[in-house]
């Protein structure tokens, strides 16, 4: 790890303030993502950049820099970005691979160059670490929440899926269906992929609302589907329940006296902070679990949680109430800030 002047960001920081050149210890983090447009990606970027800044400020002996690249959904572009980045030689790379098999040769190359590779979401055996979400477990929690809050009567739900073939989407679907299967009054009347696309989700929601007049709820594998679904249901005066996945702040805000009944608290901002915390811990010589599971509670209101427990919702599932969830989602440093590693 020789003295690097690689980054524009580093140069910018250096010209902005402290005489950074005097510092010996540097930590350079690059995060390569598959996209940059979904609300979740935007939150991710915000958490990541805020955390970089906070850590750089909190630890004066280490110069911490970071970059965030988006492959805009293209595997070729992602491979190119990864190759270029390896050539740059950062300390830690987080890669949310569009397809893990395609990245095997690059993992080896990165490790040869002394870069720590952290596979994001889809675990890789060869990577130094994998940062995973436990999608099946989370999905099951959402499915069981649907059961527990359905009120025992026949209850019709439509499930919006991810892009066909996407592992994360498939795992979430598997979990949701598994959770729903724990009771027999809930019926899945429709399952359709919306390709992580809000506009598609909108058309699907509109079709469902006309097709199934007695639809009770919409469940989705991402909160991105919730925005148009909620807006359409509200505008057509229909009283539907929504079960989200992601912990987007605007969706969490729709929970108190709102139509959203449960959400999975991934939260892009939280996760972005956790990336930087993890990179810093590794940099300081700690070794996290090789497969690191992101801590993901379920979010409900306190009343709904009580009702759910009465209806047989398992007590060992971690549940955050709305205020707490909003707090940690908005303020990533609470859980993963510099204080958490001091």
């Amino acid at each position: 790890m020789t003295f690097k002047t690689g980054l524009m960001a580093a140069t910018a920081l250096a010209t902005l303030g402290a005489p950074a050149w005097a510092q010996e210890d540097t930590l350079d983090i690059v995060f390569i993502n598959d996209g940059h447009v979904a609300p979740y990606h935007v939150a991710w970027l915000k958490g990541f950049e805020d955390a970089i800044e906070a850590y750089d400020e909190a630890f004066e002996d280490t110069e911490i820099t970071g970059r965030w690249l988006s492959a805009e959904g293209s595997l070729e572009k992602m491979i190119q970005q990864t190759e270029v980045t390896i050539n740059e030689g950062p300390d830690v790379m987080f890669v949310n691979a569009i397809n893990v098999d395609a990245f095997e040769p690059l993992v080896a190359k990165a490790q040869e160059a002394g870069i720590t590779w952290i596979a994001v979401h889809s675990p890789m055996e060869s990577a130094d670490y994998s940062f995973t979400l436990g999608d099946v477990v989370n999905g099951t929690n959402q499915g069981m929440a649907i059961c527990a809050l359905s009120g025992g009567e026949p209850y019709k739900v439509g499930v919006m899926l991810g892009q066909a073939g996407n592992p994360s989407g498939e795992a979430r679907r598997e979990g949701i269906l598994k959770g729903i299967a724990t009771c027999d009054n809930v019926e899945v009347v429709a399952e359709q992929p919306a390709d992580w696309d809000t506009v598609k989700a909108q058309s699907i929601a509109e079709n469902w609302l006309t097709q199934f007049e007695d639809l009770d709820a919409i469940s989705g594998v991402t909160d991105a589907y919730m925005y148009p679904s909620i807006a359409i249901a509200t505008n057509s005066g229909k009283d539907l329940d929504f079960f989200g996945y992601d912990g987007d702040i605007p969706i969490l805000q729709q929970m108190k006296d709102g139509p959203v009944k449960a959400d999975i608290l991934l939260s892009g901002t939280r996760e972005g902070w956790n990336f930087v915390q993890m990179a810093y811990r590794i940099h300081k010589g700690e070794t996290p679990d090789k497969v690191y599971d992101f801590y993901t509670p379920l979010v409900m209101t306190e009343e709904n949680h009580k009702i759910a427990l009465e209806n047989g919702f398992p007590e060992d599932v971690e549940v955050y109430y709305v205020d707490q969830a909003l707090d940690v989602a908005a303020n990533g440093y609470l859980e993963f800030g510099p204080d958490s590693v001091k």
Binding site: S74, E76, I98, D101, A102
Partner: peptide, 16 residues
């Protein structure tokens, strides 16, 4: 060439 580059066949390759 693309298959060789990513050592796999991908349904979403060549997008845009």
């Amino acid at each position: 060439i693309t298959v060789g580059r990513v050592s796999s066949g991908q349904p979403w390759t060549g997008l845009y």
